[in-house]
Design a binder for these strands. Sequence first.
DNA 1: ATCCAGGAGTCCG
DNA 2: CGGACTCATGGA
Length: 302
Amino acid sequence: MNWRENDKYLELITPDQFSFKECLVFLGRSENECLHYILDGCLYKLIKIDEAMILLKISSEAGILKIEFPDKYPSQIIRTSIAKYIWDLFDLDRDLVNFYSLASKDKVLNMLVNKYYGLRIIGISDLFEALTWAIIGQQINLAFAYTLKKRFVESFGEKIIYNGKDYWIYPEPEVVSKLQVTDLTKLQFTTRKAEYVIGTAKLLASGEISKEELLTIKNYNQVRDILLRIRGVGKWTADYVMMKCLKVPEAFPIADVGLHNALKLQLELDKKPSLDEIERISLNWKGWEAYATFYLWRSLYE
DNA sequence: ATCCAGGAGTCCG
DNA sequence: CGGACTCATGGA
């Protein structure tokens, strides 16, 4: 991590192959997103570190990611955590040289990596958020998924108000673990989805499952199996979480509908490709399936 | 109306 | 293991 600070803001010196602008397009894909918002090329996001709620304003210029604190200036130790958080959010430790090299020889990815050069996987660092956001999004269209998330966050999350605008923190597992199924079905969650979300909250609140522990396991399938044992977590969700939260570069949500639609468009197919076809296409992406998927997702937004 | 959505659990052979 | 069936509700 490469960063510095003065008495007003932090600066992350970003690697060459990074485009904040491309990342912003992805972050701005839904008007209904309630956990950040974008204004004049800046990203505003509220985060919680050690019980402190800190509003961040993030912008980029000339290879520097600037983090300002519109609300209140955090302590030294929290500033360091924030720098790490943002570094991780944009996956800045990743060296993309090999991915770009492989992609330049791939008929699907070649155009995408040129068009979206510098795009990095935007993380969901909180395991509970990653798991439950995936569960919420199962088998419904993204627009409705965002609506459900917004209701969930605004019912059980925390917020601050700054300049008359609300900034939200995703609900904590400790809070959600104590809910009843009807608390969520009221928000239009299905009964099953409500059970999955509350059950997942219990596993995380009790510490039975934690991101820290999962990160110590180096074997891909071993981590995946632990996630798959959670009720409501199937292959798609496990791979999604490994991609967005645990930052496993070979994680590959192959059954993802968005991936299918993006491939259909890129390859100009009449219908969505079959799983066999995708497996064949993705042989070229070995070790970089998560990035290939993310660039394809990006291609769905302009 | 009709089809489908960033699926998962269950049952059955 | 692999396939069919069920759940369940809004968006386009």
